[in-house]
Amino acid sequence: MTDRTYIDIHVLHSVPPSNLNRDDAGSPKQAVYGGVRRARVSSQAWKRATRVAFTDELHLPAEQLGTRTKRISSLLARRIAARTGLDDVAAARLGTALLAQDLNIKAGKKETETAYLLFFGINQLDAIIDLIAERAEELAALADDALTKAVADLPVREQLTSGHPIDVALFGRMVADITSLNVDAATQVAHAISTHPVEIEFDYYTAVDDQKTAEEDAGAAMIGTVEFTSATLYRFATLGVHQLTANLGGDTNAALDATRAFLTAFVRSMPTGHQNTFAHRTLPSLVSFVVRDDQPVNLVSAFEKPVRSRNSGIAEESARRLAKELSRAASSWGVTPLAVASVYEPNSDQNTDTLAAFGVPHSLDEAIASVLQAVRGRLQEPA
């Protein structure tokens, strides 16, 4: 059994003019907090960016990761064909029979799709194929009724409820019609909001037709506008290491590897909305990992009164506010961290005592190593 252990992740992240995450009208998402309008990036957008970072930045192997798709049937059929040598039609028929027995996954509007997105691991599909690989040709030769009967007792559901990839273990899975496939998420991710008020601005742009001659109309061939904002964002997420360990079958080494991957990817990731227009990829100005054994603590209340700093800058003042709120949570409410490891670089003219709650500055790798060391001692092999 694993003791209850949380890792809170607090990030201050300044982005230049950008439209990271837009609404249905194309505007940057916003929220009213503390009586003023803030820039906002949805939790879904940053979770997606984190998942992409697992592959693009951390280069984690595909067998450790999941995929979210309506095309589980066709994906399973292709892997059956590649593994067993069956033709596409026979592989699709066999795959459909496997998924239909006891799962009852509903078909979507398109023949090749399910009615809803399913989040699963490629390794879990391979585990399903393991059940029939040695007699695939024999099963494919059966009539429909005989095939259904032949696969009826195979533990297909068990393959999708164990051996989870790390992103399913982290972010969970919800299938309303098949509750036995549900996985409780080990992470919670807040909507990122600006620590200060923002206004939406408009970029008026034109495009010139390169093939026009000097004698022709010299006007633009196309004109348009795109909305943008710039902000110092407060980002928060929390990871329940105990839940992550349970989702990974009690494998503490796998849980530590997944924790390292999540901490790294969440901090370094960035949503890609309008990235070619704004080139908004920046790195955080401050990251603080806080290990707790009581409850997660979102420190957004540090910014309920919006930051309005003209002298030292928004990010510096936001860091001071965040440190003060971290200390207040411990002194006033008794939620005292087990460990704190932070990444920041105090300015030479800054009173470092104001940031003492963050501890001494580390590099990102050092901070994560410190957190993992604190967590490792709390992980126990399952009884």
Results as ranks from 00 to 15, higher is better:
22 R>F: 11
319 A>R: 06
350 Q>V: 11
314 I>C: 09
170 L>Y: 06
33 Y>F: 15
360 V>P: 06
336 T>H: 01
59 H>V: 11
150 A>L: 08
289 F>Q: 00
306 P>K: 10
8 D>R: 02
84 T>R: 05
191 H>Y: 14
319 A>D: 03
160 L>T: 01
134 E>M: 04
331 S>Q: 08
345 E>G: 05
35 G>D: 09
324 K>F: 07
108 G>S: 13
147 L>Q: 07
311 N>C: 04
382 P>E: 09
145 D>R: 13
285 S>V: 06
294 D>A: 14
345 E>S: 15
357 A>I: 08
162 S>I: 08
77 A>N: 08
365 D>G: 01
357 A>C: 12
59 H>L: 14
273 G>Y: 08
48 R>W: 06
46 W>C: 02
274 H>K: 14
78 R>S: 11
335 V>H: 12
329 A>Q: 09
260 R>G: 10
293 D>I: 01
309 S>C: 08
51 R>K: 15
197 P>M: 06
143 A>I: 03
271 P>M: 05
299 L>P: 05
75 L>V: 05
264 T>Q: 01
186 A>W: 00
212 K>C: 01
37 R>L: 09
364 L>R: 03
344 Y>K: 02
160 L>N: 01
294 D>L: 15
269 S>F: 00
39 A>G: 15
285 S>H: 06
143 A>R: 13
233 L>R: 00
254 A>Y: 11
28 P>E: 04
19 N>T: 07
51 R>I: 05
42 S>V: 05
247 N>D: 06
314 I>T: 15
59 H>G: 11
282 T>Q: 14
197 P>C: 07
306 P>T: 12
164 H>L: 15
314 I>A: 10
43 S>E: 10
159 Q>A: 13
90 A>W: 04
104 N>D: 15
223 I>R: 10
201 E>C: 00
179 T>G: 12
373 Q>D: 14
149 K>L: 14
89 V>P: 00
83 R>N: 05
101 Q>V: 15
